[in-house]
Amino acid sequence: MDAGRNLLPTRLKGNRWLRRSGTLIGFLIVVIIFTLNNPSTFLTLPNWLNISQQVSMLAVVAFAMTIVMVMGDFDLSVGSMASLAGILAALLFRAEQPLAVGILVALGAGLIGGLINGLLVSYVGITPFVATLGTLTIFSGAAFLFSGGETIFGRDIPAEFSGFARTGLPIGTVNERPLLFPAMTILALVVLGIIWLLLEQTTYGRRLYAIGGNAEAARLAGVRVRLLRLIAFMLTGLGAATAGLMYASRVASANPTQGAGLMLDAIAAVFLGMTLSEEGEPHVLGTLLGVLILGVLDNGLTQMQVDSYVREILIGGIIIGAVTSSSLSRRNR
């Protein structure tokens, strides 16, 4: 595979910097277009804080997804894990358990779900696609089963819990109302910081990238591939459960399908981020850009009152375009 890539015909020539930054430049162009179209609203601090809060759940899932994608794996079950985590927490709240119990059980479910994925992929040896497709269905079924297919809301969700999505750090006032730096955004940034440290600054992250590049060579160089892969899936599961809790807090309710949209967007964000790296490897800062692109497009197109179906077509086209242009330019060796 590597040899083949190395020996592709080299027709396209391009500036090295330009080819790595194409996605970033595209992002800036999109921002400029939206700014010109909505001069009074788009490029304002409140709008960007709003965007940051809107994408914070997707961001957490996408950052966590980056961990497994570094090894060349996927986790398709993140969305249904997020739903399941929200349902579990809400059920415990309804049973008048303390806040901490609900949250810890939900996060524990994320770890256990990740453990199952990890065992299937790295010890049983099923491909991640099939294994996590299976657990996607299982987690989703469990969420329906536990909730009886209903949405849990209202009095059942404690105010402290749903309040989290509405608080933030006051950083000023706009039109005599306090402007808050949302707690959800802060949480997403904290997750970003932790995963960045983990992937870029620790021996664990270094080994994950080695596995992604050549698992057999990594193993022979003393990397415990199976164990590290298992841990990576657990961390991704934990991230998914965190996002599920954030979602439940934001909508002050839990229903068994509310995480469903997260998985595809998270994978898309990681792919968009991968276009920034020379070797096409995922990096969590690249994923951040991917998340911002998706969030900004969503926000800007909504402000321009573009039909939501058109929006989806546009976003899909942009993902394909970005990944195509970067893989074409990578052939230039």
């Binding site: 590597d2 600054q201 620790t202 021996t203 664990y204 270094r206 080994r207 990238y209 080695a210 992604g212 590049g213 050549n214 060579a217 990594a218 160089a221 003393g222 990397v223 070797e279 490897e281």
Partner: peptide
Amino acid sequence: LVLSRSVRENISLPHLRRLSTSGVLL
């Protein structure tokens, strides 16, 4: 080799534990 990584990372791969602070931070 992990061909997608640098000379430095390929040389250090089996020795990461010794080349890090308390086995964790590079």
